[in-house]
Design a protein around this nucleic acid. Structure first.
Length: 830
DNA sequence: GTGAGTCCTG
DNA sequence: CAGGACTCAC
């Protein structure tokens, strides 16, 4: 996995870790890497074939799309008369396949309003076919179980026709035995069949029947036990492989779901089987009975997986149907007639044709196929169940009295009144829906196909089901009971999210899960995947501002990034910020400050200070600034400052009294220093360079003093002095350089450069008249520096201390007005 | 040990 | 302007 330069180290590490895990997993569970790779390729190829088939379903509305399908499946499919069932296996095979394909096309036609559903049906068809039947064929599964006999009412006579048919189509290579190639369930995969239980039972029974057939065949030819076994095993493996290729992915997504205990079962079972498989190479002579037992276990696992997958698909299908019904619920009856007719026909298709549909017989779709399907389904109790369910669903969605009309409509699909205006509207709606679904579907399909087409650089044979498997691979497959089966699938699943998006996942989650696409394209290897619903929920929850966060602690993005620390944030309304606007000496709390200073140079100063404060805040201090922001959005500067100061308080751990003061309490005592306090301190510097702590307390009586506040104020003045002395030294040296020889030539006036620099620093707004005394002190200081430098005292590291001593004695008394909290306002208004 | 102050850095 | 390191006096 290529590391992106822009990725942070953490991300890179994470990615690497994930990849490593993935590799470990794969390697750990792979007995034969090469074989596993081949199997993976096979799986990919098959998945590709399935995708292409689905795409064809989308793009091809033609009833003859079966040609394409068969071509892609590498199966030469002669076109025979529909409904003709040959007694020979090969013919039966062909017919069944053709039927299936045709049926699929007819589904496509009827399902056009639901492109996604069409694909789902395709996939389901594949799976169901592999599993040997449709959901509603549980009873038939019984029949098949009893003896592979043909189904009464079904045109198919072989018990194992359908699934292997698909297998043959997708794998296109196995010398499948007739039994394997023939499925007892030559019926269309019904999506409307919501009876999962029956489907699974049928599936299991079909598997069992096949296994028994295999056993029988093996027992009849002991002389060829090993080769036959190999062959059978290979076939079975291929079959299982194919099944897993489609079956596994959805279970994986569900495996991750905490609420899916079956996922764990599958996982454990898979691991168990893998272990078993790894042992098998040393037990080449083990009885086939044992293999059969294992096969049964595997079938059960597959069944469970299939069940989960079907559940997902059915959920999505229901969502689609409900949406569709809701859309047309508001339309009139005529619309219902037409659209519901179509829809129900589709549903009937998915549920292997409903009685109603069988009655009509005038469907647009292939009549023969449908009829045969109907014939089969008519005798199926499960079909009535499905039908009843569909009706109930309709009733729930439609107004009373709709049902009879619907029934009548059901009889004549496509007979909906074309002249109805509502019908036209409905058509428009349908078109819109189609387009939307088509676009979504196209996106997903393109993505999947793209991904599939890229990585393995498949050869033509790999792109589609390989025609043959290298003989040398047989032993591996046989011995390991297809050990690569799980391995490859695991690998596919593990990297499915990144490298190989599972086609089933994409399709399954497509209709109702817009996130599915993102989910798949996201680089989330080995990361626990949520079920689509979970995903959706999660994303929605995130969108809804993370329901997991405590309401009181809703940190803003900034606070979150800064590492908001609730414990240190005891007061809901930090006073530094809160109090500041209310006592602002510069004007009204709400805007007076900004309104006045914004136009003045001082506002820039304050902005700068604010910026610095913000910088400080951003430098890793923890503040509940989101409260400030929300409470005084009009005072970003003061807010920041207050925060900064409150931060200081927090850091000092002197927050005991903070909770006592509320910004609305009217108290003049602030918990922190505001920008105005800083400004005031600067102005005070014109009078005193070395204020004592007591003095500061006196002049900042509106501030609740603590160690931190005092230190802060002292630090302020220290900084003032620093700048002051720096300027003095600077100008003293400059004077020396200018050739001044005597201190008498040195003077500090209001228009001199030194004063301007100082005034700019302490009185940027120039809205305060600097006392003359300060000029005197500045002049004295400058001369001191000049003399010291001239005397060469600056060689002494502490040569300034003597100057400090002198200057500290020059402090003058600060006017009483500075003791007023509103001194700034008063001073600046003078 | 603590506070005040300075120096240096950012 | 703040913070850290450091010194120094108490």
């Amino acid at each position: 996995m290529p590391d992106h330069d822009s990725d942070s180290l953490l991300n890179r590490q994470t990615k690497r870790r994930r990849v490593d895990i993935g590799v470990k997993r794969t390697v750990g569970s792979t007995a034969s890497t090469a074989a596993a790779a081949t199997t993976t390729t096979d799986n990919i190829a098959r998945a590709k074939a399935a995708i292409f088939s689905a795409m064809n379903s989308l793009s091809s509305h033609s009833q003859h799309g079966s040609d394409t399908d068969s071509m892609e499946c590498s199966v030469v499919q002669p076109h025979g008369g529909p409904g003709v069932v040959s007694a020979s296996d090969s013919e039966s095979k062909s017919n069944v396949l053709r039927k299936l394909l045709k049926r699929a096309n007819s589904y496509e036609d009827t399902m056009m309003p639901f492109p996604g559903t069409t694909i789902i049906s395709q996939l389901l068809k594949n799976n169901m076919a592999k599993n040997g039947g449709g959901p509603e064929r549980g009873d038939r599964g019984d029949r098949g179980d009893r003896g592979d006999a043909g189904f009464p009412g079904s045109g198919l006579s072989n018990a194992s026709s359908d699934a292997p048919q698909e297998d043959a189509c997708s794998n296109s290579s196995q010398d499948s035995t007739p039994q394997e190639c023939l499925s007892p369930f030559g019926r269309p995969p019904g999506l409307a069949a919501f009876d999962i239980e029956r489907l699974n039972d049928e599936h299991l029974r079909a598997k069992r029947a096949r296994v028994e057939n295999i056993i029988r065949g093996m027992s009849h030819s002991p002389s060829v036990v090993v080769p036959a076994a190999s062959r059978h095993e290979r076939d079975h493996d291929m079959d299982g492989e194919r099944e897993m290729e489609l079956d596994c992915p959805p279970p994986q997504s569900q495996q991750q779901a905490p609420s899916s205990p079956r996922g764990g079962e599958v996982c454990s079972s898979s691991s168990r089987e893998n272990k078993r498989k790894q042992r098998l190479p040393q037990q080449q002579q083990q009885s086939f009975t044992q293999l059969v037992c294992q096969r049964k276990e595997q079938k059960q696992e597959e069944r469970r997986q299939l069940k989960l997958q079907l559940e997902d698909m059915q959920k999505q299908l229901r969502q689609l149907q409900e949406k569709f019904f809701q859309i047309y619920d508001s339309t009139d009856d005529s619309e219902h007639n037409d659209l519901h007719n179509d829809l129900h026909n589709d549903i009937g298709n998915m549920s292997e044709d409903s009685p109603t549909r069988s009655d009509t017989g005038g469907d647009d779709r292939g009549g023969d196929d449908l009829r045969s399907d109907n014939e089969m389904s008519d005798l199926d109790p499960g079909h009535f169940l499905d039908r009843a369910r569909a009706l109930l669903q309709e009733q729930a969605l439609l107004a009373d009295g709709e049902k009879p009309r619907r029934e009548g409509l059901g009889r004549s699909k496509g007979q909906g009144g074309p002249g109805s205006s509502m019908h036209a509207e409905g058509k428009q709606l349908a078109e819109t829906l189609k387009q939307e679904l088509n676009s979504a579907m196209t996106q997903v399909v393109d993505t999947v196909v793209k991904v599939f087409a890229k990585p393995p650089r498949p050869t033509p044979q790999q792109a589609f089901p390989p025609l043959s498997i290298p003989p040398e691979r047989f032993p591996t497959v046989v011995n390991g009971d297809n050990p690569n089966f799980h391995t490859a699938n695991q690998r596919l699943q593990c990297f499915g999210d990144v490298i190989i998006p599972n086609p089933l996942d994409s399709f399954a989650s497509m209709p109702g899960m817009p996130d599915a696409t993102n989910d798949q394209t996201e680089a989330l290897p080995l990361v626990v995947r949520k079920t689509p619903s979970e995903h959706h929920h999660q994303s929605s929850a995130v969108g809804a501002h993370g329901g997991h966060h405590h309401p009181a602690l809703h940190p803003s993005s900034l606070s979150a990034s800064m590492g908001f620390s609730p414990p240190s944030f005891r007061h809901p309304f930090p006073l530094p910020l809160m109090g500041y606007p209310f006592q602002s000496p510069l004007g009204a709390p709400t805007g007076g400050y900004l309104g006045k200073d914004r136009s003045s140079p001082d506002s820039m100063d304050l902005s700068r200070e604010t910026t610095s404060l913000r910088t400080k805040m951003a430098s890793g201090h923890h503040l509940g600034h989101h409260h400030h922001r929300s409470l005084s959005p009009a005072h970003p500067g003061s807010t920041a400052e207050g925060l900064s100061l409150s931060l200081i308080k927090s850091e000092c751990g002197d927050l005991q009294d903070m909770a006592d003061i509320s910004p609305y309490s009217g108290s003049n005592i602030q918990e922190g220093l505001s920008p105005n306090h800083l400004k005031k301190a600067k102005l005070m510097f014109f009078y005193t360079r070395y204020p004592s702590s007591n003095m500061l307390k006196m002049f900042f009586s509106d501030v609740k003093f603590n160690r931190c506040i005092t230190s802060q104020l002292i630090k302020w003045f220290s900084n003032f002095r620093e700048f002051y002395y720096i300027q003095m030294e600077k100008f003293a040296r400059q004077a020396i350089n200018d050739g001044i020889t005597g201190t008498e030539e040195l003077s500090v006036s209001r228009d001199c450069e030194l004063f301007r620099a100082l005034n700019m620093h302490y009185n940027k707004a120039n809205d305060f008249e600097v006392p003359d005394r300060f000029l005197e002190v500045a002049e004295i200081t400058l001369r001191e520096f000049f003399n010291a430098i001239v005397a060469g005292k600056d060689v002494d590291p502490s040569w300034k201390k003597a100057i400090y001593k002198v200057i500290c004695k020059l402090d003058s008394e600060v006017p009483e007005i500075f003791k007023s909290p509103n001194c700034l306002q008063e001073l600046l208004h003078e």
